[in-house]
Design a protein around this nucleic acid. Structure first.
Lengths: 112, 112
DNA sequence: TGGATTGTTGGACGGTTGTCAAACAATCCG
DNA sequence: CGGATTGTTTGACAACCGTCCAACAATCCA
């Protein structure tokens, strides 16, 4: 019954992204992992095995996605049954110049 | 009974500072406020009215100090009854180049 | 149409957190 | 010495968080 389905899930405006909320979102190992994965610039659907979250329940992953979206870190595009998530890199760079870059540079070479 | 009292409270080695713990510590409005205050480079004792935390109980302030110290953000020097706290700027810069700078640049001009 | 797939929502549960208050410890000083 | 000062520790409590499960909704496809 789908027409031309493709909608962006609600997210804060760039100007409304708060640093404390961003840091709170990143202050969790799972979401920090997602941040690193998303930073490749690619998009992922939630169940992608490339996310490396196979040990977590799908509802838990959905929960983390929502936290990151509401913090302004991630953008989610709904297409059919899938959700394509990407890092809001340009928006974050505009609001917090240099932050994402230094965060990525601060990550250990290998996570596991 | 004090001899030549001046001891550094236990804190993680620079190499042991973890990014996720740092971000978790900063993901709280009170500690983010302290981070900004400490970033001036000065030192403060815990009860300083310059901290702008007069609305919080002293034990609560002590609690936040401990979180920041254990995360590797702050260093506390005990002198007599006072605790002189400062940001571990050099250590943080060494471990996470550019991070503190971009965080400070990302803070709103006026907090309140 | 009807089963399979994908993700969200609600509830439940245990663990963590931010806060205050009271008691304590250490220090300073008159 | 003994009271005042400064900060820590412990306990309590409500709120929040990460997780799972079950139920649900929406979509895809045979």
């Amino acid at each position: 019954m789908a027409d031309d389905e493709e909608q962006l899930l609600p997210q804060p405006e760039t100007a409304d992204i708060e640093l404390v909320k961003v840091l709170h979102a990143l202050g969790d190992p799972t979401r920090m992992h997602l941040f690193r994965v998303y930073a490749t610039g690619e998009q992922y659907d939630c169940s992608s095995e490339r996310l490396g979250l196979n040990h977590l329940h799908k509802s838990t992953v959905s929960h983390h996605m929502r936290i990151m979206r509401e913090a302004g870190l991630a953008s989610t595009r709904a297409v059919g049954r899938n959700r394509y998530v990407r890092l809001r890199r340009a928006d974050l760079d505009a609001r917090f110049p240099g932050l994402v870059e230094s965060l990525l540079a601060s990550l250990p070479a290998s996570e596991e």
